[in-house]
Amino acid sequence: MSDVSVDMSPSLAGVKMTAPLLEVEELKVEFRTRAGIAKAINGVSFEVNSGETLAILGESGCGKSVTAQAIMGILDTPPGYITGGQIRYRGVDLLKRTDEERRLVRANKIAMIFQDALSALNPVFTVGFQLAELFRKHRGMSRADGKKRAVELLDLVKIPAARQRVSDFPHQFSGGMRQRVMIAMSLALDPELLIADEPTTALDVTVQAQIMSLLAELQRERQMGMILITHDMGVVADVADRINIMYAGRIVEKAPVYDIYAKPSHPYTKALLESIPRVDLKGQQLNVIRGLPPNLTRIPAGCAFNPRCRYVRDACKVDPIPPLYEIKPGISSACHFWKEVRGDD
């Protein structure tokens, strides 16, 4: 975009530009359903800075999307409730702010890309309308100016013939193109932080790579912070700087991306890596993880992973829950026996 010199986005009182972009501290979320209280997130903490990509990785139902929704402030309440912790944007705890202040943070400061663009885009409005809406409602632009900006955005995400396509409806785009529209929409107001919730899961493999590299490129150019949420170990390798592994609403391992692959420190991470089919191990039995993730209304005592763990001991089956042991700066694991897992002595 051409005129980034003027920052027109609304400012939030108390923001310190020196503070980290986003800090999540001891976040707790539960869902109150008829079947009982599901503890979706049980004290999650992490930090993202400008220009870096943090991947949050885990099975479906581990709480990674819920974390994203809690940060965005778009959790469905009821049934979802944030019961504790802080979400600090530039030092400001968003959970203590009014709905109106939080609304202005969305899209302006923190934007989100959703998994399935077909259902995430409104089927009855043109793509141009949905993009221009952001400029009209947040920047007070006219319809015509908004549409002009929409075309620029479509160009930015490399949609061919953007001028014509701007008046098409979402269902007229291919899956990959739709996800580009979704990306364009998230970038419209120059957010500082981008949350990408499984941005490529719904796409073909070849398209996945294109979308990921587009995302990485845009993130680098604009020095945004990015939270990449995924269940796919392959996707994160090229893009992420650091990885947090989530299991049953907790982070079980944190490490820079290289270390995770080279030397996992938690049995769950290790199992995830071993369940990726590898060409060099052709013909051998694939190591899938036994069993199922726990029911969040009845998380087992002790380490939540203990029923499926290869390294399980009696200590794992009783409280206290293993804390995140810091192994070295930047690497930690929530396993009592991390030494054994890593093969360290």
Partner: peptide, 10 residues
């Protein structure tokens, strides 16, 4: 989903 998107658009 698109209502959630609309919310996320602030």
């Amino acid at each position: 989903d698109y209502v959630r998107t609309a919310k996320a658009k602030g």
